[in-house]
């Protein structure tokens, strides 16, 4: 298998941090979406997605991130990203994701700005 991926979730009192590892394509994206939906349905609407260990994100992965943003908006929640490479950040801004979700350099600032 070329793409070894993993998702770790750390839940705090009022927020959760989702950390992804591997190539964010449809397979990892679907798992990420399931985990995020579980958190949202459970009432956790303040999320941080840490992409530091995700070196590549394709456009299908980005479309799944957009679905998570939309699901959170329905619950008046917030999503912040951190750990993006400069190319990932540029792509997120190009695709308007940065208009609807925060982008921060590290987890600490992403959590502080929820």
């Amino acid at each position: 298998m070329l793409n070894k991926f993993d998702i770790q979730i750390r839940e705090a009192k009022e927020h959760a941090i989702i950390e992804t590892t591997g190539y964010l394509n449809d397979a990892l994206g679907e798992q990420l979406s399931e985990k995020a939906q579980e958190l949202i349905q459970g009432g956790c609407t303040q999320l941080v997605i840490n992409l530091e260990k995700t070196t590549l994100i394709n456009s299908i992965g980005i479309s799944i991130l957009i679905e998570i943003i939309e699901a959170l908006e329905e619950r008046e929640g917030t999503l912040n990203f951190c750990g993006l490479s400069s190319t990932q950040e540029r792509t997120f801004r190009m695709m308007a994701i940065a208009k609807y979700a925060g982008i921060f350099p590290d987890e600490e600032s992403a959590v502080a700005n929820l």
Partner: peptide
């Protein structure tokens, strides 16, 4: 989607 500028698909060539 909710926001017209958040197009989910067809962005590969733009990238």
């Amino acid at each position: 989607g909710v926001h017209p500028d958040l197009r989910k698909r067809g962005r590969g060539l733009q990238i």
